[in-house]
Amino acid sequence: MNVNTYVVAKTNDEAYQRLKENRKNKILGGGAWLKISVKDVGQLISLEALNLDYIREKDTHIEIGAMTTLRDIEMSPLVSELDSGILSEAISNIMGVAIRNLATIGGSVMGKFAFSDILPVLLVMDVKLNFHHGGDVDVETFLSNRSYQNDLLISLKINKHKRPGFFHNIARTHLDFSMINLAIIKGENMFLSVGSRPGLAKICHQTMLFLDKQNSIDDAVIESAASILLSEAELGHNLRASKDYRETLLKTYFKRGMKKVVL
C-alpha cells in the first residue's frame, strides 16, 4: 500500500476538511481491512488524538465512539444488554480476538463491507450514526447514500431497548466471511435485515410490513413471510455460496429466528 503522507488530525474539523480535500485522502480506522480496500492513499488521516475511543451511557442511549475497537464493544456489559445482546454476539463471531482488538466500529461501518456481520444488526437496532458534518443519520439512509463517505463518523448512538432479538451468520470457517447473515428484532414492529447476500446488507421492508399486519404469528404466517423474504432479499451467487444454497440457509434461519423472537 502506498501512502503519501500520514497526518494526525488535532480536531474533528481538521480531519473532515482534510478528507474533503482530495478523493485519495482516507481516514485511518483500525486498519484491519486496509490491504483489501485501499491501494494508493494521499493523506492517511489518523484520529488517534480525537478521543473517539469510548462507550458511554446516556439517559436514553449508549454512545460508542467511532474509534472503539470491536473487542471493547463485544466485552461491554452496556452493549450486551441492548436488544438481546445481538450486537455483542455478531461481533464475537468475527474472526479472532486479535483482529477484533484492531478493527474499530467506525471503520467497520464506513467500509460498507458486503460481508459485514455488523451492518445487518445495526440496521434492525435503533441506531443513529453521528457525523461531523451530516449530524445524526439512520443506518439505512447512510447505506443508500454515497455522500456520507466524505464525512467524518464521530459516534454511534444506540437507543436503549431490551427487545427480543436474533442474529445468525453462516460461514465456512470461523475465519471466513459470512455466506449469509440475518438479524431480527421484535418490538412494537418487526425489524428484519439480511447481509452477505452477497451484496450490501439490506432491511427487508415488505416482509416486515407483512408481519406487522398479522394479528398473530404462527407457522403458516412465518412460511408465507419466508416466501416474501426470499423474493425481497435479492440473493446471489459468489465463490462462497450459490444463490440456491443462500436461499435454503436464509429460509431455515429466518424460521428459527422468528420462533425465537415471537413464538
Binding site: A32, A98, L102
Partner: peptide
Amino acid sequence: FDGKPVPSCSLLAVK
C-alpha cells in the same frame, strides 16, 4: 500491542 494481541501484518507501523 499495549498488552493486547493484534495481527502485525495489518497494523500500520505508524499507528
